[in-house]
Simulated assay, not measured.
Amino acid sequence: MTTRAAPRVPVRVLPVTAWLLGGGVVLTQIVYSMTDPADRLPTTVLSVVLFCLASVLDAASRLGARAAGVLVAVAGGGGLLAEAVGVHTGFPFGEYAYTGSLGVQVLGVPLVVPMAWIMMAWPSVLVGRALVGRGRARGPAWAVVAVAAWALASWDVFLDPQMVDAGHWTWAHPTPALPGVEGIPLTNFAGWLLVAVLITGALHALLDDPGPDLRRGPAPALYLWTYGSSVWAHAAFFDRPGSSLVGGLLMGAVAVPFAVALWRAHR
């Protein structure tokens, strides 16, 4: 008696599902901007969950299930470890505390926080690989990691002011700060850059680099959406023109060249 093999899930299901999740991210964030500030928590969490899942499936569709597992372990586990150490010791970000508004916590860190590290770490690696080079023209690993880490850490110039203003965490010593980004200490951005180097460096070392196909999967588009929508939202909705300008310049240093690369890939 012969047994029939279980039907395989078509490979195209992964990128299609990732694109659907990416569309959900955009829709959720649009709803967020139209919601009263006191009622934004559900859309905050939902957008992170959808973005995280989209990034994981994007990685799986490009490099297989192992890549998705590595992404979750390195970015999620590494982000959780860094945040747990940070919230209990003040290193490497500075002394801060979560207010408890973001829901379930693990080791004193809201579960949604390591998911945020996952969601942006993967697109940031793709940014680094795309801008430094790919295939035979691939640049040195240190350069890929430097660009990827900047792509990830510069996003926090938008994230931290928004979340502090929403009351999700507080800083014990919010000065000195970046000009125009009041309330967030410089130590936080230094800590982000350090952790971003470690996470993106590990991901780049552990995952194959056949060259990022910028035409496949939502991660590249979601990175650029995050950049553009953050510049707009901080200027128009959050009354943070300073962080809109500074974040626009710092994250734009990689986001704008990446947008050009994405445009060329689709020509």
Rank of each mutant, 00 (worst) to 15 (best):
L57T: 01
A130D: 01
L46V: 12
G78R: 07
G77S: 13
V72Q: 10
F238G: 00
G77F: 14
L81P: 07
N188Y: 00
G133Q: 05
R138V: 00
S101A: 15
A221C: 01
G128T: 11
P185I: 02
G103E: 12
V49Q: 08
A221M: 06
G64C: 02
V11D: 03
A255R: 12
F91Y: 13
W155V: 13
V104H: 05
P185A: 02
T89N: 05
A68R: 09
V164L: 03
G103L: 09
G103M: 09
R267Y: 03
V181A: 03
H266Y: 12
G139L: 00
T200E: 05
P174Y: 01
L206R: 02
L178V: 14
A146K: 03
Y32S: 11
F158C: 04
V70I: 15
A149N: 08
G139M: 01
T35S: 13
V31A: 15
V132R: 02
V145Y: 04
P257Y: 10
L126R: 07
P42C: 07
H88P: 02
D209S: 10
L102H: 08
P179E: 08
S243C: 04
Q105T: 13
R216Q: 06
V260T: 07
W122G: 09
L194A: 11
P174R: 03
H234L: 13
L102F: 05
V72G: 07
A59S: 10
V113E: 07
V85Q: 05
D165A: 15
L194W: 00
T28D: 14
R138N: 01
D213T: 00
H234A: 02
W192A: 06
V147S: 05
V147P: 04
L262D: 01
L27H: 09
T89A: 03
V85A: 12
D58W: 04
V147E: 05
A190S: 03
A235E: 06
V49D: 11
S230R: 01
R136S: 12
S230F: 05
P92L: 02
A153M: 14
P42A: 09
N188I: 00
V72N: 09
F158H: 07
R129Q: 14
V85D: 03
F189W: 01
G217Q: 07
R264V: 11
P123Q: 10
Q105N: 06
D213G: 04
